[in-house]
């Protein structure tokens, strides 16, 4: 089984069990009753302490675009010819900017999206280093 780990610590958790959903990590401020992403050192509103929380892995597409430029960190255009980007609102009141799977005609504001690992490199032993992306949840 392919092992997937986050590119960096402190942004997301990817369970070893593939049936378990990956989650982004945020900060909850009890004093402000607000949640933030990514993790904050302390509440940016009240300057009080925050606790690390796992965020919902589903949300709603607030806006999107389809980008036809090389991805950040690359000088080369994507072989697929472009990639989707979106802002996804999670139930905690957090807006996430993310790569989104799909073609331009697939995207619609308000559509339901689900978080997924986004493999960006693979080690010799098969370990995948992952960022994150959102994928549209198919209509039932």
């Amino acid at each position: 089984m392919t092992k997937q780990i986050p590119l960096e610590e402190g942004y997301m958790v990817i369970p070893d069990d593939p049936d378990q959903a990956c989650r982004l990590l945020g900060s909850y401020s009890k004093a402000a009753d607000k949640t933030f992403f990514p993790i904050r050192k302390r509440c940016p509103i009240t300057e009080q302490s925050v606790e690390t929380v796992e965020l919902s892995n589903e949300g709603e597409l607030y806006s999107w675009s389809f980008v036809l430029m090389p991805k950040m960190g690359s000088q080369q255009q994507d072989a697929s010819g472009g990639f989707g980007v979106g802002q996804i609102d999670l139930p905690e009141g957090v807006r996430i900017q993310s790569v989104i799977d799909g073609k331009q005609e697939d995207f619609k504001i308000g559509m339901k999206m689900r978080l997924a690992p986004n493999p960006m490199a693979t080690d010799d032993d098969g370990t995948q280093y992952c960022g994150f992306k959102f994928i549209a949840i198919e209509e039932a």
Partner: peptide, 25 residues
């Protein structure tokens, strides 16, 4: 702080994408 020379979590979307999403909204 990144692995494999890949972009960090903090630096994955281009400004072009950000402004385009503002426009679509």
């Amino acid at each position: 702080g990144t692995r494999k020379g890949l972009p960090s979590f903090e630096n994955t979307l281009l400004p072009a994408g950000f402004f385009a999403m503002w426009a679509v909204r």
